[in-house]
Computed example of a mutant assay.
Amino acid sequence: MAAVTAPEVGVGEVLDELAALEDPKVRAVNERHGDDHGVNLTQLRGVAKRLGVQQPLARQLWATGETPARLVAILISRPKDYTAAELDDMLREARIPKVHDWLVNYLVKKSPHVEDLRVAWFDDPDDVVASAGWSLTATRIAKNPEGLDLPGLLDLIEANMKDAPPRLQWSMNDCLAYIGIHHPEYRARALDIGERLEVLKDYPTPPGCTSPFAPLWIGEMVRRQAAG
Rank of each mutant, 00 (worst) to 15 (best):
L91P: 07
D16I: 00
G194T: 00
I96H: 02
A227M: 13
R196H: 11
L117V: 03
K49V: 07
Q60L: 06
L103R: 12
T139Q: 06
L75H: 14
L107V: 14
Q225K: 15
W134F: 13
V9F: 03
A6R: 10
D116M: 03
V47G: 02
D163S: 08
D116P: 03
Y178T: 09
Y106W: 08
A19E: 14
L191I: 01
D36V: 10
L71D: 11
H37C: 12
L71M: 13
S111D: 04
R167I: 11
Q55S: 13
R70N: 09
E93M: 06
K80E: 15
A164Q: 01
P165K: 05
D88V: 06
L168R: 04
D101P: 12
D124V: 01
H37N: 14
R27A: 15
H33P: 03
I74W: 07
D126K: 01
L91E: 10
Y82Q: 03
L168T: 03
K25A: 15
Q225F: 13
L15F: 02
L107N: 13
V72N: 07
D174E: 12
T42S: 13
W102K: 15
P7D: 04
V4A: 13
L117D: 05
H183R: 12
A138K: 09
Y178N: 15
L44T: 07
N144S: 15
S135C: 14
L191K: 00
